[in-house]
């Protein structure tokens, strides 16, 4: 059931909602926590579709030279799992994964090379949703339950998802998981600030959209002890992500498919 804004005004006698709502959204962007990120990210708040396309295109840079996943570090994964109530179903067929490790040759499956630099041969790479600029999952979703935000984040609307899993077939990165069963019994500590999911919907990493809206960095970025993950605005030439990409050689996963993945790995 939906209620149009007009009906809402009529019924409740609310006068200024329509005009002020968006103003409020931006007003709050300027305040409190948003400031933390607004400089670094250049975002802080989602803007309206018309002006954001030029202003903000969020992206992630993962410096594999700094990443110590091979020494058993799982800090980014743990922070995400805990913060987003991800059930621990191990590596079973029902597994749910938002961010996890894959060997370099699996993550970059189209970069076959037997004579790699030694430290990359068995390198474990953190992989997660690329929040593609041209996301095939959004294109195929029959209900727009997955959609692209103006700042580039590929969002999930868990109330709308019908669980057809067409997005999973379309994703070339295996970034999406389906709730094959009720996840709650498999969550040790429920974070009350974030919902759990119901069985029968698809989920994935959304670069902590809920934190980005408050001007905070994604949990994985914050948790990384080596500062190997950097998050920011690709459209701002002075942002840290742009500086890193300018000075270092970076690769993306399967760029040839035209999805324009927005996670850049420094190698």
């Amino acid at each position: 059931m939906s209620i149009s804004r007009r009906t809402l005004l009529k019924l409740a006698g609310i006068t200024a909602l329509g005009v002020t709502a968006e103003k409020y959204a931006t007003a709050h962007a300027g305040s409190t926590a948003a400031k933390v990120l607004s400089k670094a990210v250049g975002a802080g708040k989602r803007l309206t579709k018309s002006n954001v396309q030029q202003k903000v295109r969020l992206a992630m840079v993962v410096d594999l030279r700094k990443c110590v996943s091979n020494q058993g570090c799982t800090k980014c994964i743990d922070a995400c799992n805990r913060g987003h109530n991800i059930p621990d179903l191990g590596d079973s067929k029902d597994a749910i994964k938002w961010i996890w490790k894959e060997p370099y040759e699996s993550a970059f499956v189209d970069q076959e090379n037997f004579y790699m630099r030694d430290e990359f041969k068995n390198k474990m790479v953190p992989v997660f949703c690329n929040n593609c600029d041209n996301p095939p999952c959004v294109e195929v979703c029959p209900t727009q339950a997955t959609f692209q935000r103006p700042d580039g984040i590929v969002m999930m609307d868990w109330h709308r998802c019908i669980g057809c899993r067409y997005c999973m077939a379309a994703c070339p990165y295996g970034s999406r998981s389906f709730n094959w069963r009720d996840p709650r019994p498999f969550i040790k500590d429920i974070n009350p600030d974030y919902p759990t999911r119901t069985k029968g919907v698809v989920e994935k990493c959304t670069w902590c959209d809920e934190r980005v809206d408050q001007g905070l960095l994604p949990l994985c970025v914050e948790a990384c002890p080596e500062k190997a993950m950097v998050f920011g605005n690709l459209n701002d030439p002075n942002s840290e992500v742009r500086q890193l990409l300018k000075d270092n050689f970076s690769v993306r996963r399967k760029p040839g498919l035209g999805t324009s993945p927005e996670v850049y790995y420094l190698v």
Binding site: K93, G163, R165, G174, F178, W180, R181, D182, K199, G200
Partner: peptide, 14 residues
């Protein structure tokens, strides 16, 4: 129970 009752998985999702 959910679709977990089938043989489908995170990898073979249809």
């Amino acid at each position: 129970y959910g679709l977990g009752i089938t043989g489908m998985s995170r990898n073979v999702s249809w």
